Amino acid sequence: MGSAKHKTYDVVVVGGAIYGSAVAWWLTQMDGFEGRILVIERDPTYTNASTSHTNSCIRQQFSNRTNIQISRFGAEFIKSFRRYMGGDPEVPHLTLQSYGYMYLADTPEFAQTLKESQAIQMAEGAQTRHMTAAEVAADYPFYQLDDIIAANHNLVDEGYFDGGTMFDWFKRMARKNGVEYIHDEVTSMTLNPQGTAVDSVTLKSGDRIACGTVVNASGPRAVATARMAGLELPVRPRKRYTFIFDAAHPLDRDLPLTIDPSGVHMRSEGKYYLAGCPPDVDPDVEFDDFAFDHSLWQEKVWPIIATRVPAFEQVKVINEWVGHYAFNTFDQNAVVGPHSKVANFIFLNGFSGHGLQQSPALGRGAAELIAYGKYRSLDLGQFSYERIEKNHHFVEKAVI
């Protein structure tokens, strides 16, 4: 455990993984903002953080314009990473492996949804292509497509990238720019007498830190952090499984990140392949529950990928892990911005699997709110906590 250098901070960030570090770094980029920033992280190894278990993908294939705009900026940020980091020659260039997402539709209704989403994506500048099964077969003859009616695919700025390096440099450059990180844990919060602001946070070490703004960036533990301020948040840990496998008969070209109608997804992973899925029964779990369901591969994943890609009849799992989605049970989209009553409590939660790819834009948006009291780049108002209070769902049809 380490002690904070000061007793008062303008911004206290609870959680130092991708979102805590993104908002901290972005705050150092806000013109005129000179506040003191403290990031509190309970596990600086990040062993069980969702950031450490991510598959590092980015897509523009959403149905909601705001989500598309967020990913368009995310792709720009990745491709211009060194420039955004100030041009430091030590900052690596990030590569966006753009072999795209391939959404496969096996019903007329799903095919129509894909077609409508493609029109929205194209209007926002994405290069998504709506394809017949014959067109998919011409480009990717390894698929078995007897049940497929249509598909959407995008080969521009959509695929995967090195999310671990992006996170590492958010953290490094935040520190270089004066952000303070400590290894400790927030155990409680004290509100002012009116209950309209968090005055201070108390740490496991016993230290008490006064704060101007609190940012909840605690991933799957977000509900516990919110409850310290007397607030409720519909975000719970949900397990998501990933398998890395070798194929006896490798494909002759890249495998797009293919979303099978069953919900199983798969893609190229260097010389190997990656597959993943939610469990058939998908309950809320404890934040420290990483028990692995070893039957999932044999009973669900492998039969589906071997049916869709017959070359995958002979494969061998070489690595596997389970991580957590910070799953927003309300509408499976982010909650960003202040609470309606406790106005200095900022949510940055509930990404439901979209977190890493959305961190450049949503980290920037949260920093703008803190520094200026409003969004200056993208309008992220649809993600407000107020929508939960008013029962207004953020509608996004493309959720994996």
Rank of each mutant, 00 (worst) to 15 (best):
M228L: 14
A229E: 08
A229V: 11
L231Y: 02
L231I: 15
E232C: 01
L233C: 11
P234K: 05
R236H: 13
R236D: 02
P237A: 06
P237S: 05
P237N: 03
R238H: 10
K239M: 03
R240N: 00
Y241I: 02
Y241T: 01
T242Y: 01
T242A: 10
F243W: 15
F243Y: 15
F245Q: 06
F245R: 09
H249I: 13
P250S: 11
P250L: 12
R253S: 15
R253D: 14
R253H: 14
D254I: 03
D254K: 12
D254M: 10
L255H: 08
L255N: 09
L257N: 09
P261A: 03
S262E: 04
S262I: 05
S262D: 11
G263S: 06
G263D: 07
V264L: 11
V264K: 01
H265F: 15
H265M: 07
M266Y: 11
M266C: 13
R267D: 04
R267S: 14
R267G: 04
S268Y: 07
G270Q: 04
G270D: 07
K271T: 15
K271M: 12
Y272P: 00
Y272W: 08
Y273F: 14
Y273M: 08
L274K: 01
A275H: 13
C277A: 15
P278H: 13
P279F: 01
P279D: 09
D280V: 09
D280C: 03
D282N: 10
D282E: 15
P283R: 11
P283Q: 11
D284M: 06
V285Q: 00
